[in-house]
Design a protein around this nucleic acid. Structure first.
Length: 307
DNA sequence: GCTGGACCACGTCAGAACAG
DNA sequence: CTGTTCTGACGTGGTCCAGC
């Protein structure tokens, strides 16, 4: 019979186990075509920073995907949602891809953000001075925009009960351009730097000098961590990296398709088997009933003969 | 009409089982 | 050993129905 089951299936409780990993889906409030707040938590890093506290270090950032793909614009939106979903729901795959994209070779800084202490900034918010608001990757089809009116929070919520995790909160406030989305991926590279991945194979990396300074010190001295937007730390050309990422995505989608198909087939077989068992039960019950009646008839016959 | 529970189908993940 | 397949577990969304 095809149904010898393996009865043991240990599944990691999603929230608990992922909290100890690199990825944890904490909150994902994205509507159709309107990206909202996404909170991605990172493993602990040597540089504590505090979110939504007097020592808050808040960056305002809106990453915009301008899908100039020949496909429909809506498809681009859906695709970006798909990718976002994948990286939120598939920590392993995301980690794998990020590992592929990372190596020991430091990348060349593409765009460097200078820290700024603007006057008029709210006391708990140190807004970045953003000399340029829109960046484009070498692929030419993805635009990354940093808006002064947007928000991004990179922090270490020490009081949220999840110790050792870093939170990256990105929102697009105001009126982002059409097709705007948020930074989607985050990871820790091999050299210990935080990398916040944005579409187009670029990463936002915290500078090392500020990494070494605890945020409470930074707050006390007025220092702020600075972040760079740069290529992933890989020795491979960006085109190759893109190809690898696309290949990984294709493989993943193929695998999911296969798994889904297998799962449907498995359920169909299981239902068939259950139905088969139910039929068998019905037949056996009928048989049992018939045998009981037969036995009763024979008993009656025997009793009559005995009399 | 609203709500809550039961049921179903589906997608996804993780791990066991299996094949090469 | 590695890649693939199978399947239990979990989460989600839709539908139906009884109770209010």
């Amino acid at each position: 019979m095809w149904w010898p089951q393996h009865n043991l299936c240990f599944r990691h409780p999603i929230e608990e186990d992922y909290s100890s990993g690199i990825w944890k889906k904490v909150n994902c409030l994205h509507g159709r075509g309107s990206p909202a707040v996404t909170l991605v938590q990172l493993p602990s890093t040597p540089q504590p920073s505090v979110i939504q506290s007097p020592q808050i270090e808040l960056f305002r950032l809106v990453a915009t995907i301008a899908e100039t793909d020949e496909s429909a614009e809506s498809e681009g939106v859906i695709d970006s949602h798909k990718r976002e979903k994948s990286f939120h729901e598939d920590p392993l795959t995301g980690k794998k891809i990020l590992n592929e994209l990372s190596s020991d070779v430091p990348g060349v800084p593409k765009i460097e953000e200078e820290k700024s202490e603007e006057e008029g900034t709210p006391p708990n918010i140190a807004a970045m001075a953003v000399p340029t608001s829109i960046y484009q990757t070498s692929t030419g089809n993805t635009v990354f925009a940093i808006a002064q009116g947007g928000t991004i929070q990179i922090s270490n919520p020490g009081s949220d009960g999840v110790q050792g995790l870093q939170a990256l909160t990105m929102t697009n406030s105001g009126a982002p351009p059409p097709g705007a989305t948020i930074v989607q991926y985050a990871a820790q590279s091999a050299d210990g730097t935080q990398q916040f991945f944005v579409p187009g194979s670029q990463v936002v990396v915290q500078d090392e000098e500020t990494e070494l300074a605890p945020s409470h010190m930074a707050a006390a001295t007025g220092d702020m961590p600075t972040y760079q937007i740069r290529a992933p730390t890989t020795a491979l050309p960006q085109g190759v990296v893109m190809q690898l990422a696309e290949e990984a995505t294709r493989k993943r989608e193929l695998r999911l398709m296969k798994t889904g198909k297998a799962c449907r087939e498995c359920r169909r077989k299981k239902k068939e088997y259950v139905k088969c068992l139910e039929n068998r039960v019905a037949v056996l019950e009928n048989q049992n009933k018939t045998l009981i009646e037969e036995l009763k008839a024979l008993k009656d016959l025997y009793c009559h003969k005995a009399e």
